[in-house]
Amino acid sequence: MTDELTHPNIPVPEDLKGTVTLATWEKFYNWCRARSVWPMFFGLACCAFEMIAMATSRFDFARFGMEVMRASPRQADLMIVAGTVTKKMAPQVVRLYNQMAEPRYVVSMGACANGGGPFKEGYSVVSGIDKLIPVDVYVPGCPPTPQALLHGFVTLHKMIENTKYKDMIWYHNRGQGEEFAIPVLGPDIFDPRQIPLIQSEAAKTPVAANDSE
């Protein structure tokens, strides 16, 4: 472990190399965090099986310190949105994200979570989870192979390692545990943040309206 953490400008005596490391606290802290990310045991659709495949012997994400999958959002750091987010499921996904403690990360896995995927044109699919919650890493594919997802994790680890202390919002009073608006199932799903827009559009009409019923 030691050599990768040691700051290049701080010389470590030759005989102590391998046992002693000199690094900034920020670097050490991030290094620890990046190697103990606990994902939430949370699958939505097809991608969930490639996510599970990644947990099993051939791919084995325990190598990255991630093998502890938690079913409770309270104990998880990482939400892998593995699959299609439907309108009916979207309130639950946002609620789960709200329940996660900071620092929390989101990996959007597969075409559907990234932007609706092959089902985008339909009526019951949210066109991308990033419309509702912030996403840190997007993994393309339908479904992404386990290798692709691992690459996504490595990318996330790099992101965590490069976080500056001043950007760690959970140590400052701004934005901590921010609640994201939970969409409501109306005649069609609506985001409370969009209510003024919907009202102004409704006043404009006619929109593409449905005649049936």
């Binding site: 419309k131 005649p187 609506f190």
Partner: peptide
């Protein structure tokens, strides 16, 4: 789509009263 999302509402729909 005016909402930038995969949604549509019938004329006169008021989400605040839903």
């Amino acid at each position: 789509n005016p909402f930038g999302r995969n949604v549509q509402y019938s004329p006169g729909f008021d989400p605040a009263k839903w």
